[in-house]
Amino acid sequence: MNHKVDIIGASMCFGQPKLGVDFGPDSIRYAGLVEALETQGMNVDDRGNISGQYKVDPVHHSVKEEAGLLNFEEVKDFNIELAEEVDNSVELGRFPLILGGDHSLSIGSIAGISSYYENMGVIWFDAHGDLNDSGSSPSGNIHGMPLAISCGLGHDSLVNLHHPDVKVKHENVVLIGVRDLDAGEREYIKDNNILTFTATDIKEMGIAEVMKRAVGHLKEREVDGLHLSLDVDALDPIETPGTGTPVDGGMTLLESQVAMSVLYDSDMVTSMDLVEVNPLLDNKNMTAEKAVETASFLFGRKQL
């Protein structure tokens, strides 16, 4: 594990219609993220938030633009800036920890990171697949599309953002915790043979076995970098109520911590997104606190 961690706040809310998720990075900070990482021996540099030039207009926040996509220009421009910031972090030999913000920010984070890896892997912890495009999406919300875009499916200017072409191969992707897939996403997963562990798989097999198989698959693929993208809705809403698209039947806090411990022990993870914390929907910052408690296990926290 790289002990030099850059915290990059991505105050993105344009990929979906609900206000408040742009406050997610600061709510995670207030929940004690820096202290938790420093306790684990990390050298932490908080680089602040990307947000200044992106002003939220509550009246016109949900405007469909290019190809029926919500807030297309804002999402694109924000991700261009985020990709550059993340690229700089990796170039300096640090571990970029990107705080969201909605999940459309992963377009930029993965684009910036993938410049440095020829065979990057991605673990996608999420209740959703985020594998839609403008044709399959029932909403036009880009936060349901970032993984597809990173795999090469979507609007050209998003697919080719920061550097041209596909950022991650389908066979280098593992979905974990999914339990709410659109019809087009199910078809896409099957057509491209993406390794997927549903919430039911976790309950039947146990999270430790799921993670063992996920890590084993990526080792067989000989990935040279591993990006973890963790949406807090992968956990059950009882644990993380402050998120925009909660789905019942998710992981417990303990299961998420076990999963992070397996990844820590693998020494494979080179970057991370921690996304979709919305304090306006939360209960006393509970979701941000659970996000910190989960992430700290990725950086070496143990129960004993």
Rank of each mutant, 00 (worst) to 15 (best):
Q257A: 11
D180C: 13
K219M: 12
E204C: 09
V173Q: 03
D267A: 15
G216E: 04
F125Y: 13
F23S: 11
C151K: 11
I238M: 10
L235V: 13
S139M: 11
T287Y: 02
G9V: 02
G152E: 04
R213S: 15
T196K: 06
E38T: 03
I176T: 05
Q16A: 14
G300Y: 00
G129T: 01
G242H: 09
H217L: 09
M211L: 15
D6G: 02
V56D: 06
V86W: 09
E220P: 11
M272V: 14
E171L: 04
F299C: 02
G9N: 03
V90R: 05
A10Y: 12
P138M: 08
L99I: 08
S51G: 15
L19D: 12
I98R: 01
S51K: 11
C151Q: 14
C151W: 00
G9Y: 00
G152N: 00
E204Q: 10
G9C: 07
I189H: 02
G15V: 03
V277D: 03
T196C: 09
E65V: 08
E74P: 06
K18G: 06
V122C: 14
G184M: 08
K284C: 15
I107Y: 10
G68M: 02
I207H: 00
E187T: 11
H103G: 11
D224I: 09
G121N: 09
A234Y: 09
D273P: 04
F78C: 12
Q257K: 13
G250K: 07
I149L: 09
Y117W: 01
A10E: 04
A31Q: 10
G129V: 11
S137T: 15
D6V: 10
S296P: 01
T287Q: 10
P164D: 15
H61S: 07
H61T: 08
V292Q: 01
S27D: 07
S11N: 02
E35Y: 08
L158H: 01
N160I: 06
A288F: 03
N278M: 07
H60E: 11
A10T: 05
H60S: 14
L69T: 00
V173G: 05
T245K: 05
I98M: 13
V63M: 12
G177V: 07
D57I: 01
V34G: 07
Y54I: 07
A214I: 06
Y117K: 11
I202K: 10
D180Y: 07
S271W: 06
G242Y: 03
L153C: 09
E255C: 08
N71K: 10
H162M: 01
L253N: 12
D248Y: 14
R47F: 03
L105S: 04
L228Y: 06
L19E: 14
Q16D: 07
L19H: 08
L263S: 08
N278Y: 04
P246R: 01
I8S: 12
K190I: 05
K290T: 14
V174K: 01
E204W: 02
G101Y: 12
S62V: 07
V75A: 03
M286Q: 15
P246K: 13
I28E: 00
E185P: 04
E289F: 05
F78V: 05
S134H: 12
H61R: 03
F14Y: 03
N285W: 03
K76V: 10
A67T: 02
